[in-house]
Design a protein around this nucleic acid. Sequence first.
RNA 1: GCGGGUGUGUUGGAAUUGGUAGACAACCCAGACUUAGGAUCUGGUGCCGCAAGGCGUAUGGGUUCGAGUCCCUUCACCCGCACCA
Length: 918
Amino acid sequence: MDYEFQKIEKKWQDKWAADKTFKVGVDPSRPKYYVLDMFPYPSGAGLHVGHPLGYIASDIFSRYKRLKGFNVLHPMGYDAFGLPAEQYAIQTGQHPEITTHKNVARYRAQMDRIGFSYDWDREFRTSDPSYFKWTQWAFLKMFGSWYDKKLDKARPVEELVKAFAEGGSAAVDAASSDAPVFTAAEWNAFSDKEKSDILMHYRLAYQGETFVNWCPQLGTVLANDEVKEGYSVRGGFPVEQKKMTQWQLRVSAYAGRLLEALDRLDWSDSLKEMQRNWIGRSEGAEMVFKVRNGSAEYDMTIFTTRADTVFGVTFMVLAPESEWVEKLTAPEQKEAVEAYLAEVKKKTERERIAGKTVSGVFTGSYGINPLTGKEVPVWISEYVLAGYGTGAIMAVPAHDSRDYAFARKFGLPVIPLIEGADVREESFDAKEGIMMNSGFLNGLTVKEAIPAAIEYIEAHGIGRRKVNYKIRDAIFSRQRYWGEPFPIYYKDGIPTPLPEEALPLTLPEVDEFRPTEAGDPPLARAKDWTYDGYPLETSTMPGFAGSSAYYLRYMDPRNDGALVSPEADAYWRNVDLYIGGTEHATGHLIYSRFWNKVLFDLGYVCEDEPFLKLVNQGMIQGRSNFVYRIVGTNTFVSLGLKDQYKTTEIHVDISLVHNDRLDTEAFKAWRPDFADAEFILENGEYICGWAIEKMSKSMFNVVNPDTVCDTYGADTLRLYEMFLGPLEQSKPWNTKGIDGVNRFLKKFWRLFWDRDRFLVNDEEPTRAELKALHTLIAKEQEDIENFSFNTTVSAFMIALSELGECSKRAILEPLTILLSPFAPHIAEELWEQLGHTGSVAFAAYPAYNAAYTVEETCTYPVSFNGKTRFMADLPKSLSKEEVEAAVRAMDQTAKYVGDGTIVKVIVVPGRIVNIVVK
RNA sequence: GCGGGUGUGUUGGAAUUGGUAGACAACCCAGACUUAGGAUCUGGUGCCGCAAGGCGUAUGGGUUCGAGUCCCUUCACCCGCACCA
């Protein structure tokens, strides 16, 4: 019998599906293990070979854990709401639901061919009403909660209302955004609308006015992580800053907990570091400066991490968007300020980032240094950001490079505060040195001066210690159609939550998917978009809403009465292993952690962190090919000759190219405009250029896993993707090495079959064969636990070559089990042929027996006259005396005879003995 | 600018974590079996050298009996953040 992978793979995939082999349930008699992939957004392009990389790794791990006796939850689904389907809908009029449906079917078919051990009964889409019911439910929970800083957790808004009624705003210490101050009596006298407005400053999901990333082309606002360098991540359209009222999530309330819990997670350092930077904790002080505009005087608070430098303040700066600008603009400067603000507003975000030019304008007002009493001018400049700190700073040009650049440009004084710091050419930003010109701080080091200054400020009522975070609240509304509708309606202008019974609130039909002429979101086109006679919210939730708690839903996906039942939650708890790309570091992975913590605080889930271990698989890049067209002609010149002409580089489909040689006839047939192409060849061939690039349709370098499954089979694809290199590394796809793993599988098959003869016998294995087997068992366990799948595949190949043509059942049976996580189809087939009826997926993992692998002898490095030589085959664990004796014996026969005196014998822990002979 | 990471044959990548560098593959070469082979099997394959031997893990130094591995210098590349006071 030959290894007919197509037949075998089809057979077992059908069987797994029919038998629901990988269906799991709560089973307290067995330990659980939860392995999750970042579920895909089903795009129109289908899967390429890069997508399954992480899925294969997680599948191997799941199957390995199953063999180890764990009850493994391994689900899959689709992140189905999102922009591309909607953009497509706007262009074609096709409902995004239909597009999504089609794409999902394609994804599923592609995944099914690779033989994943998902429990498909748990599959869902985030666009299913039965799923997004719980997204909306979670939103209502956040809407109905506030963050109590005293208890450091979220609590129901009812408790907040009660506290206000009894003690006014002073009764709570809450995370809030510019909440007004009021007494209990005032609270009780407020109208419903006023109360609602005030509560908005406290709710975890709230409506608030803020600067947002507005993308005109997409017609929607975007979250910070959806914007890169002033352009939208989806689509690459310019994004501008605009002040708008939007739904937001109070992620900032959780900044401290999100940061602190990172230490307990088994994530890569780089990913944790990215989250740390994003959260951006910085310790410093808030300080009050008196500011004067003519006769009007105010207290203005600023934030600084360098309280030690107050004596060097020579001016102050406001962000252009700061509310202080209006108050502090003196009449004589009004015109100049307005001109400046207009100029700033005109610039796009892109220009602000790229330009980094120093600009600013004087307000005409002055601030008073609280320590020196000196007056300093207040300026406005775009280098101060409205969203961070208080939007106003004290400037210390001597010790801050940005302040320095500003001072030099506008001729403001620079006062050095650190002994020996030369500030003639540049500022001295380092936090080191001895203080001077600084009153009571003189003589202290900077490190001592910072806390000393803060202490002084606090003691004198000028300011207080303060921790600031960069992380902003997440903008949660999108002016889009294809997302979860908000379960909110406007009762007499008051945003009111729908009752839970009204969920899910499903999307209405609309005649078109673009905004209305009035600029309202597409939902405003719906005929009767009301609840109880009142208008419903017309924006929808962003892409990350649906992915924020999907891992919880997988635990209990068909439950209609709860996001997840307490039993299922208590059993599955959280994700033990999460595999996915780094691109979600500051988006999904922050939002999910936030979302989970809210649900944890409110008592709906039992763990406060969702993902214990996280592995980032690297990207698989494509290898693109190019042809070179001579400008203005339809003549193409081969790579080696292209420098003699003026050419443009054109991507060519890699299926028309073999070993960088172009099939010119196929090229002509590829596209009508190339039909009459002519070629300038070298040595009779057209050689293409190449580059490693992102795999994408537009670069014609996409490799479809289906093609690989057709030619080599899913098992080869799985093994090969792992063999390609370390999981976490990015690497280009090339099929050069794929024959190697394919050969391995064929050889493996031939241990069982010679033509039509089944070779497996019951002979006793030799010691060498047992050694090969047990070495592999040890190696595979170690490597899989360390996610070093590439070396495991190598270990299989080594074992195979050591086993020769061994066809003994006692060896092949465990070998089949060991192989099953990597190449499950062939393993199932051979397992059946070995006479087993159950699936190999649930066989017991072979026990490792050290007796077969531990070396009786080992090699000792011995150093003679500065040269290290190795003495082979000495017994293990020698005593010092025995080693000395052995060395003396060696010394007489070896060529490098010293004077024979042993000066030092070092026995390193383990088995390395280090000997120095003089 | 700040932060994180990487650098090993022609190529993908190994190296018991300080112990015979280049495992396992790909490529290439030679051979065997074949009508044939893009099938299968065997052998070779870091560089220089006929050889003995020497040289080799981006660069230069250091620690050590011993360094791909640890420390410092320089260079190159990749990723993330980017006026966060």
